[in-house]
């Protein structure tokens, strides 16, 4: 049976891993290659690296970083942050990334998803969605772009369904309301999306306790959980997370 995945997320800025609360107040959390290799040894199923500066200058740095990670880490990893073209995706995949995530550029040009899927296969294309609860409509979420700074009128569930049709192979769904709070994932959001699409969904934002991981999988229907604060600052090891999930009947790769 396919196991549920635990995916540590490493937000990278100037070649360092950082972590903030609600996308602000960044704290230094370590060296990306070292942290990546450490998580791999500790039993992480995958890794996500997000280039949160995503400037033209950082584009080159991130390719070099991906090369270094790929020489030392033998589990899959996804790279995202500011990716705009199929050629940029190509460069990252060639450097050793297994998947690439797109966000703002895909909202502006949804065809980017289709182009990338037809060239590299759907399984390489992750759509990252930054979701914020709508203030106007209950049980609805807005897609936010530019690292969450700019809300759009696009409904998160509609966008997820459209992206699946275009060829996205996976959705990385971040709740901006929950991100960094350690108060648990937004499982109403997770459930709304996992029920609407047939591609895997990674729940992101809000993990603080072991039972939050279980809830995202069981209540939210998530196929994988993204973790940051809960792992970087040493609250729980990956092994503890997996043993906990296994004890509650969730299939994991222990």
């Amino acid at each position: 049976m396919l196991t549920k995945r635990i995916i540590p997320c490493l937000d990278v800025k100037d070649n360092r891993v950082v972590k903030g609360v609600k996308f602000r107040n960044l704290r230094d959390a370590g060296d990306p290659v070292e942290l990546g290799a450490g998580y791999s040894d500790a039993g992480a199923d995958e890794l996500v690296f997000l280039d949160i500066t995503a400037t033209i200058r950082s584009r080159k740095t991130i390719v070099e970083l991906v090369e270094k990670v790929a020489e030392n880490v033998f589990i899959p990893f996804t790279v995202g942050g500011g990716i705009q073209t199929v050629d940029q995706i190509d460069a990252l995949l060639r450097s050793g990334a297994e998947k690439v995530s797109v966000n703002t550029a895909a909202v502006g040009n949804p065809n980017l998803i289709a182009e990338a899927a037809q060239r590299f296969g759907n399984q390489c294309v992750v759509l990252a969605i930054d979701a914020r609860r709508s203030k106007k409509h209950e049980h609805k979420w807005q897609v936010c772009v530019k690292a969450g700074s700019e809300p759009t009128d696009i409904d998160v569930v509609d966008w997820a369904v459209k992206a699946e049709k275009l060829g996205a192979g996976e959705i990385l769904l971040t709740s901006m309301d929950a991100d960094g709070t350690k108060a648990g994932y937004d499982n109403e959001l997770n459930k709304a999306v996992t029920e609407a699409v047939n591609i895997p969904v990674i729940a992101s934002g809000g993990a603080g306790k072991l039972e939050h991981l279980y809830d995202a999988i069981v209540l939210g229907g998530a196929d994988a959980v993204l973790t940051a604060s809960i792992t970087h600052f040493g609250n729980h090891t990956i092994k503890q997370m997996k043993e906990y999930l296994a004890s509650r009947g969730i299939p994991v790769n222990l």
Partner: peptide, 8 residues
């Protein structure tokens, strides 16, 4: 889910 994605 399709793709079949992850550890089996």
């Amino acid at each position: 889910t399709i793709p079949h994605m992850g550890w089996n």
